[in-house]
Simulated assay, not measured.
Amino acid sequence: MVWFETILVVLTLLTGVIWLLDKLFFAKRRAARDGLLDEEPVLVDYSRAFFPVLALVLVLRSFVAEPYKIPSSSMMPNLLIGDFILVNKFAYGLRLPINNQKFIAVGEPKRGDVVVFKPPFDPNNNWIKRIIGLPGDRITFQGNTVYINGQALAYQTLGTYSGRGLPYGVDQASELEEQLPGRPHKVLEALDRFSGEGEWVVPAGHYFVMGDNRDNSEDSRLWPTTHFLPEENLRGKAFLIWLNCEGWFCKDGFDASRIGHGIQ
């Protein structure tokens, strides 16, 4: 969230400035006055201790990998509520913390990537979906089938979903494998909640994103102000589940079997 990034940046800068000013000026003045180095003021002592830790966390979180927790069922069956994931922060270019401004271009999103982003109508929160449409694509969703540039995707029925995590009001859902070019993956269909039909042409610099839980996902099909995700709102590419834990202190369950699963 923006508030956490802001606090982290402010604390890192503040402790760094205090430590640097003391090292360059105040420590020398104390030595010149007394002929020896006095005990450091408490504020300087804390700044010297915390600055390296805060700086390391800021660099890793901003430019290497950032942890997120899955809060909803929209990416089932591949991501469950309570999954803690890692997001590659340099896959699509290095970005500044807080304002998310890209300053080094590295790569571009590919069809099928699972991405974390800030939706254009909710910039203070992070969402996660799968990229279905690239700039210039014509995306159609009809009869619970995705069409890309007029070509229907193929689906293999795997049966009735028997795992955990179905949202309230959904007794059962069909589990299928969607043959997205270059990235086949599982999706869920709950036919009693079918919605989101339409056709969209993805503009330059934007992407069309959908949840894998097709009938329980607030994604590009249903967004109120725009159906497209701007490139500058991307936060990174999800690549690993490192923990699954529901509720405070895992009071609602801990699933060790999900640790280390890659995100397809």
Rank of each mutant, 00 (worst) to 15 (best):
V57I: 15
V59K: 05
V59M: 12
L60Q: 13
R61V: 13
S62T: 14
S62A: 09
F63N: 02
F63A: 06
F63D: 07
E66P: 00
P67Y: 00
Y68P: 01
Y68M: 12
K69Q: 13
I70K: 02
I70F: 04
S72Q: 14
S72H: 09
S73M: 03
S73R: 00
S73Y: 04
S74E: 06
M76L: 04
M76C: 03
M76E: 01
N78L: 05
D83H: 04
D83T: 03
I85V: 15
L86D: 05
L86E: 11
V87L: 00
N88Q: 09
K89M: 14
K89N: 08
A91S: 11
A91Y: 07
Y92R: 09
Y92L: 06
G93T: 05
L94V: 05
L94W: 09
L94H: 02
R95A: 01
L96C: 12
I98E: 04
N99S: 12
N100Y: 07
Q101D: 04
K102S: 10
K102F: 06
F103T: 11
F103W: 08
I104T: 12
I104V: 15
I104H: 09
A105P: 11
A105H: 14
A105D: 14
V106H: 08
E108L: 01
P109V: 11
P109E: 13
R111C: 03
R111D: 09
G112F: 02
D113T: 06
V116L: 11
V116Y: 10
V116Q: 01
F117G: 05
F117A: 05
P119D: 04
P120V: 14
F121D: 15
F121W: 03
D122V: 08
P123T: 10
N124P: 08
N125H: 11
N125D: 07
N126M: 12
N126P: 11
W127N: 02
W127D: 08
I128M: 06
R130V: 03
R130C: 03
I132Y: 05
I132M: 12
D137W: 03
I139T: 03
T140G: 15
F141M: 06
T145H: 10
Y147F: 15
Y147P: 03
Y147W: 08
I148K: 01
I148F: 06
I148V: 12
G150M: 02
G150Y: 11
G150L: 02
Q151P: 07
A152R: 02
L153D: 00
Y155F: 12
Y155S: 10
Q156D: 09
Q156W: 08
Q156L: 10
T157A: 15
L158F: 07
L158C: 07
T160P: 04
Y161I: 02
Y161G: 00
Y161L: 04
G163T: 00
R164W: 12
P167T: 03
P167I: 11
Y168M: 09
Y168K: 15
Y168S: 13
G169R: 06
G169H: 06
D171A: 15
Q172E: 15
S174T: 14
E175Q: 08
E175L: 09
L176V: 03
L176R: 05
E177Y: 00
